[in-house]
Amino acid sequence: MNKLQKLDLGNVPQELKLMLEWVNEQNNEEIDWEKFQAIDWDFFVQLAIHHRLYPLLATKIKDDPRVPENVQTTLTNLFKQNTYRMLHLCAEIEGLGQLFKEKGIRSLFLKGPLLAEDLYGDISKRTSGDLDVLIPIHQLEQTENLLIAQGYQKDEYIQSLLNDWKWRHHHFTYYHPIQGTKIEIHWRLNPAPSREPSFAELWDRKRRSLLTNSVVYMLSKEDLFFFLVTHGARHGWSRLRWLVDIHKLTQQGLDWRRILKQLRKYQVCSVGGQSLILSQQLLKTNITEEMRSFFKGRRPLKLAEGAVYYVEKMVHLHSDPVPKEVAEYHAKHLFSLMPNRQKTFYLLSTLYPYYTDAETLALPTKFHFLYFPLRPFLWLWRKTKKKPSPKVEL
């Protein structure tokens, strides 16, 4: 095993460390319970829910006399609810896959039950709140009309000026009020200015899922590693479910040379190294000779050290309002993930008008081009008035 410099995990809660011992797939008898004498079991349950690890834990702690009965009952009930939820999503995938095929819409299902079956061999062992589907950008309108015809409603939270939605964002969200299903339709894996494979490239390397009777496709294992690494890093690995995904994926005989070539091409090799360092030190992932190239230089370790912040705390990035301290730290961490070229593009992108510029000064559509020279002045005006700056999705 490649020897990696140790991360400082001294401030990681004992409850989370115990949780990771179970998730590590070790025999429970091997757990050194002398280290876990003062476990706050209520906090343990909170962490299990936050990190979305309760499906894995429910079966691990069942009938364990060292775990309070109420904790076992809570996690078991959550496990059952998740199983029903995943079965419902399977049925939705079945229907959507058939519809997309009939309408000629090329689609790649990114996560959900397909990912659970692929990585864990059981849809009940991973949670999923929605379905994520990647399609070519030119089929967005057709897909939206199809979903609306099926009873879905679009969440109009994205406000755009001068078509900046195409690169500032990467998906639209649709919700079915009766079925309670949410679908995110992606035209990119991640928002710009990140670089990534084109849809055509991903489509050429696709795999067919065997979970459904309908023909549905998902990413190749190597493209899946690229997606899961960049997605998890962008969210600070604030939910360890994403890191467990990486741990599981590394056990599936990946073509590491192809992965390394791809990560280098899109300048995210250090981000791949970050994920493997975290996975190795938190989940004891086996680091093979082929993985050593991901750890060259100081940057992967530095990025991993930066992510420990999210492991030490129970960070909620998806619940507004995000505390100021967390928001500021996350913005800096996101910037640190970018290679120099991407940082340059990001800084330049702040000169492109935002929808808040139109809210500050309304201009007729034919004069929207004036927002480019006016943007610095409108930004300064908002700062003077102490209005919040626009939220940028990275």
Results as ranks from 00 to 15, higher is better:
7 L>F: 07
7 L>A: 04
7 L>D: 02
8 D>P: 13
8 D>K: 11
10 G>F: 00
11 N>E: 10
12 V>A: 10
12 V>I: 15
12 V>W: 01
17 K>M: 04
17 K>C: 02
18 L>S: 06
20 L>I: 08
20 L>A: 02
20 L>Y: 01
21 E>C: 06
21 E>Q: 13
22 W>T: 06
22 W>P: 05
23 V>K: 07
24 N>E: 04
25 E>H: 10
25 E>I: 06
26 Q>A: 05
27 N>I: 08
28 N>A: 12
28 N>V: 15
29 E>S: 15
29 E>L: 14
30 E>M: 13
30 E>Q: 15
30 E>D: 15
30 E>W: 06
31 I>T: 09
32 D>C: 12
32 D>T: 13
32 D>Q: 14
34 E>H: 10
34 E>G: 03
35 K>R: 14
37 Q>T: 14
39 I>M: 07
40 D>V: 14
42 D>E: 13
43 F>N: 14
44 F>G: 12
47 L>R: 15
49 I>N: 00
50 H>T: 04
51 H>S: 06
51 H>W: 07
51 H>E: 05
53 L>V: 12
53 L>D: 08
54 Y>M: 06
54 Y>H: 13
56 L>S: 03
57 L>N: 13
58 A>R: 11
58 A>H: 09
58 A>S: 15
60 K>T: 03
61 I>P: 10
63 D>Y: 14
63 D>G: 12
66 R>N: 04
66 R>M: 10
67 V>F: 04
67 V>K: 09
68 P>V: 09
68 P>Q: 07
69 E>L: 14
69 E>K: 12
69 E>H: 04
70 N>Q: 03
74 T>G: 00
75 L>Q: 03
75 L>W: 09
75 L>V: 13
76 T>C: 09
77 N>P: 00
78 L>T: 07
80 K>M: 11
80 K>Q: 10
81 Q>K: 12
82 N>Y: 00
83 T>R: 09
84 Y>E: 10
84 Y>T: 07
86 M>A: 03
86 M>R: 09
86 M>G: 02
87 L>R: 08
88 H>C: 08
88 H>L: 13
89 L>H: 11
90 C>Y: 00
91 A>N: 13
92 E>H: 10
94 E>V: 12
94 E>C: 08
94 E>T: 01
95 G>E: 12
95 G>V: 08
95 G>W: 05
97 G>F: 01
97 G>S: 00
98 Q>N: 12
